[in-house]
């Protein structure tokens, strides 16, 4: 028996959500008296996985596997899950993980529980707490299959170091390519920007900003905080910002540690999608804006006045605390 994670790396560095998966898996393994293991595509040093309790790393290491392809990745993970006797497979909430998990579920005839927010409370049967109705509720979900696959909601379980020794097992998967059903082409990705999925801090702005030409200060605030930028739905529908920044019930979910909402009224669909964030700061000219009721900290003020000052003050704070 084991617990297996899909460890995703980007340019040789494991993503935070994979380290959260490692933390979760190693705590689960300890409770069950078993080992936490990882599947890695491409050649990456396993040190940081070992830091979070992964004691065996299957490295799938041949040319084609460098490039993500849902069917072939799911197939390879399924092979390893069977080989290692995995009872639980833990993934993050990345776009790639979300593509693999349902396919893996079919391979292993294993239940898939998505959006898991905390450590399982029961292991027989396995039961997980997950978000439903876009954070308007939670469900305790019981698994009736032998094996379970879960994806963790970002930043919910957190990072818990548990250093161990990690053995690396090289896997040659010549058949991997035969499993592919799509051919990946060009990638269009902003360099050096943090994605909403990975961000611990998200700076988000709405129609209160008046027009796309005013986003310079939003980008700057995000940059000084090491944050991702996001926006409300009308802002993306108006073409002021790309659709990939639209957050909320019908956009991307946000579960950051800090969410700063600037010139966003706080419609129910927006709130539902961002409410899993731990701390919310709202900046709005209208003291009656509904978002204030959902905020931890509120500032009534004009974004054009407040944001430039806030940028300067955070810069000063950062340089003092560096």
């Amino acid at each position: 028996m084991s617990v297996l994670i899909f460890a995703e790396q980007e340019q040789g560095v494991f993503r935070k959500q994979s380290l959260e998966a490692a933390s979760y898996a190693s705590a689960w393994a300890q409770a069950q008296g078993t080992t936490a293991e990882a599947v890695v595509f491409g050649n990456t040093k396993s040190d940081s996985l070992a830091e979070y309790g992964i004691s065996k790393c299957y490295m799938i290491n041949d040319g084609p596997s460098e490039r993500f392809e849902a069917h072939s990745y799911a197939w390879a993970i399924a092979q390893i899950a069977v080989e290692s006797g995995a009872k639980l497979v833990v993934l993050g909430a990345s776009a790639n993980a979300q593509s693999i998990a349902p396919l893996l579920s079919v391979h292993l005839k294993a239940a898939f529980v998505s959006g898991v927010v905390s450590m399982t409370e029961s292991s027989t049967p396995m039961t997980f707490k997950r978000t439903v109705f876009t954070n308007k509720g939670f469900s305790q979900t019981e698994v009736t299959s032998e094996v379970a696959i879960i994806s963790l909601s970002a930043n919910a379980y957190g990072l818990h170091p548990n250093p161990v020794h990690c053995d690396t097992i090289e896997k040659n998967r010549a058949e991997l390519q035969d499993q592919a059903k799509t051919t990946p082409g060009a990638v269009d990705k902003a360099q050096g920007k943090i994605s909403i999925a990975d961000a611990e801090i998200v700076v988000s702005a709405g129609r209160g900003l008046k027009g796309p030409e005013n986003w310079g200060m939003i980008e700057e605030l995000a940059q000084v905080l090491g944050a991702a930028t996001a926006c409300s739905k009308p802002v993306s529908d108006l073409g002021w910002r790309p659709h990939s920044e639209h957050v909320g019930q019908t956009g991307k979910p946000v579960a950051s540690n800090l969410y700063i909402a600037i010139g966003i009224s706080g419609a129910i669909q927006h709130l539902a999608g961002v409410s899993a964030s731990k701390t919310k700061v709202v900046i709005n000219t209208d003291p009656e804006a509904p978002f204030f009721k959902a905020a931890d900290y509120g500032i009534v003020g004009d974004a054009f006045e407040v944001i430039p000052q806030l940028i300067e003050k955070i810069k000063a704070f950062k340089s003092q605390n560096a």
Partner: peptide, 8 residues
């Protein structure tokens, strides 16, 4: 994809 898009 996270932070961008991919053609396929």
């Amino acid at each position: 994809i996270d932070g961008g898009k991919e053609s396929l």
